[in-house]
Amino acid sequence: MTTTDDSLAADIDACCRLTGEFTLRSGQVSSEYFDKYLFESDPLLLGRVAREMVQLVPQDTELLGGLELGGVPIATMVSAITGTPALFVRKHAKEYGTAKLAEGPPFEGRRVTLIEDVITTGGAVRDATRALREGGAIVEVVVCAIDRSPAGENPLADVGLEIRPVLTKADLDAARNG
C-alpha cells in the first residue's frame, strides 16, 4: 500500500464499494463498482485522499490537471494544500465562448500532473494526455485515488504515462477481507 493513512483503504472501501451489475466507461461489465463520488462528496474523506496524493505529486509540477468530473474536486483540494495552481480539463473542448479544453492558467510549455479519481483502463486519462500534449503541455504522471487496473499492468504505458495511485484494487480488497 502506498498510503500512510492506515485506515484509508478500509474507509474508502466501506464508503464506496457497491455490488451489482455495472457497465464501466470502458464498456466492461463489473460485479462491483467504486462510487468515487461518495468519498469525493465527503469533505473529511476527500481531505484524507488529497493529503495522500500530495505526497505522490512530482516536485517539478507546475499545474494540477483535474479531469472532468471526478478529478476536479480532488485537484482543487490538492491545489489548496500545495499552493500549486489547478487546471480543470474537460472531456472535450467546449464549443462556445473561449472553446477551451482546459479552464485555468495557460498550460503550453508547462509540466502538468494529471489528477484522477479512478483508473481502470485509463481511457479518459489517455484522451486528456493526448489533448494536453497537442496543446504543448508536458504530461508524464497521473496521480489517482484508486487504480483498478490489473496488478503489475500500466494501461497508460502506450502514452508513456506513469500512474501513481494512493490505493489499488488489491489494497481495497485486502481492507475488505482483512
Rank of each mutant, 00 (worst) to 15 (best):
F107D: 06
F22S: 06
V112S: 00
T120H: 02
T84F: 09
T120A: 08
E153P: 10
T76E: 10
A99L: 13
P165Q: 10
A99I: 12
G152T: 06
S26W: 11
G160I: 00
L101A: 01
A75T: 05
S79E: 05
D158M: 03
D42I: 01
H92W: 15
M1L: 14
K94Q: 14
P105S: 04
D5A: 10
K94P: 12
A9I: 09
L156S: 00
V125H: 02
L44V: 06
A170P: 08
G71H: 06
P73N: 10
Y96N: 11
D147A: 06
R17W: 12
E21C: 06
G66L: 07
L46W: 05
P73R: 11
L38A: 06
G135L: 05
D42C: 03
L67M: 08
F39S: 03
C15H: 11
D11A: 08
D173H: 12
P85G: 04
A86Q: 13
L69K: 04
T4I: 13
D13W: 09
G122D: 09
A75F: 08
R176A: 13
A50I: 03
E62K: 01
P43C: 03
A157I: 05
V78F: 07
T120I: 05
A10M: 15
E162D: 11
D117E: 07
I119N: 01
D171A: 01
E134S: 09
T120D: 01
E21F: 11
V143D: 02
T19I: 11
G47R: 14
T19M: 10
L161W: 00
A131R: 08
A170T: 12
A170Y: 08
G178E: 05
D6F: 12
I115T: 09
G83I: 04
E21T: 14
R176H: 12
G70K: 06
L63G: 00
D158K: 00
V57G: 09
M1F: 02
L45S: 05
S149T: 04
A157W: 02
F88R: 10
G83K: 12
K94G: 10
R133L: 01
N177I: 10
G123L: 00
L18I: 12
R110M: 01
G135S: 04
P85Y: 06
L45E: 04
Y37Q: 14
L24G: 04
R110T: 01
F39E: 01
